[in-house]
Simulated assay, not measured.
Amino acid sequence: MAERTTDGLRERKKADTRRALSDAALTLAFENGVDQVTREAIANLAGVSLRTFNNYFTGKYEALAYRQVERLRRGIDELRARPAGEPLWTSVTEAMLAPLESDLADIPGDGDDAPSRAELAEIRKMLMNPEIRSAISKDLFDEWVQVIAERSGTDPARDMYPRLVAAVMGAVGDAAMEAYATADPPVAITTLYRQGMAAVAAGLPEPRPVGAEHA
């Protein structure tokens, strides 16, 4: 029992160190831009050695992507825990957003801590950076496909449907992130994602032209 407790504490410490390094990488990216972030600077800000950084991440891009990767993994568990009779698009929306909303709730603030325009611009650059995007492995996408197949009663090896759903989720996430980075005034990313997923669930009805309601 004591050995199990020790193992649990060790794993929790590793997870805390990994999060601290990722948060340090994101802080530096906001302050100086992604191109100026180095492994040494990340380690220094997190208060660990470069060797420790190298034990956790292969490079700065993996550290920058870690928080998103972690949320995606937690989202898989969330999807498996959703009510069995719940509509699929509701389930995948809530599963995707639950980890993000949990993380946002843990951020201290007075409710008036919207990102600055400079931070939004940097967020957009990071989101579109191919090296950061490639840090999210294909294996993780395949895990989402598998759990969507389980929820929808489809076969991921034979049916295209679960892959389409996973791909659409990613596309909505990209669109919401880009809208988030350019919205003026800022709009919560969770609001944008919900709007995008609701539009998909409704079959993406063609929007009415501006002013049509007054015609």
Rank of each mutant, 00 (worst) to 15 (best):
S116F: 11
L127D: 03
I132F: 03
L97C: 10
D139E: 08
G109R: 06
F53I: 06
G59T: 00
E119F: 02
A41L: 13
E40R: 15
F30Y: 07
S137Y: 01
R67V: 01
R82F: 03
A65R: 04
L127I: 00
L45H: 04
I107Q: 11
S137D: 07
I76K: 03
G59W: 06
A63I: 00
R74P: 06
V34Y: 04
T93P: 09
G109D: 04
K125D: 05
N55T: 02
D112V: 02
G33F: 09
V69L: 12
R74C: 12
I123G: 06
M126F: 05
I42V: 14
A29K: 14
D103S: 13
E78Y: 04
G59D: 12
V92A: 13
A81D: 09
T58C: 00
G85P: 07
F141Y: 12
P115N: 15
L120A: 07
A41S: 15
P130I: 01
P83R: 15
S49N: 09
R71A: 13
E101Q: 14
E40N: 14
A81F: 10
P115Q: 11
A121T: 04
V34G: 05
K125P: 01
E101G: 11
V69I: 06
D103W: 12
R74N: 13
A95Y: 01
L100C: 07
Y61N: 07
M96N: 14
P130C: 00
D77Y: 01
S116P: 13
V37H: 13
T38Y: 07
R82D: 05
A118I: 14
D110K: 13
L140N: 09
G111R: 14
R124S: 10
E78I: 02
N55E: 09
Q36A: 15
L97V: 08
P108L: 14
T90C: 10
A118W: 06
E86N: 05
P130W: 02
P99A: 06
R82K: 10
F141G: 06
Y56I: 07
T58F: 01
T52Q: 09
I132Q: 04
I42N: 05
T90D: 11
V69Y: 01
S116A: 13
M126H: 04
N44K: 15
T38C: 08
D142P: 10
K125T: 04
I76A: 02
L26K: 06
E119P: 02
P115E: 14
A65W: 01
K60I: 00
E119N: 06
A81G: 08
A105E: 05
L50Q: 14
A43Q: 12
G111C: 09
A65P: 03
R67C: 03
S102F: 10
F141M: 10
R71I: 00
L64H: 08
D110R: 15
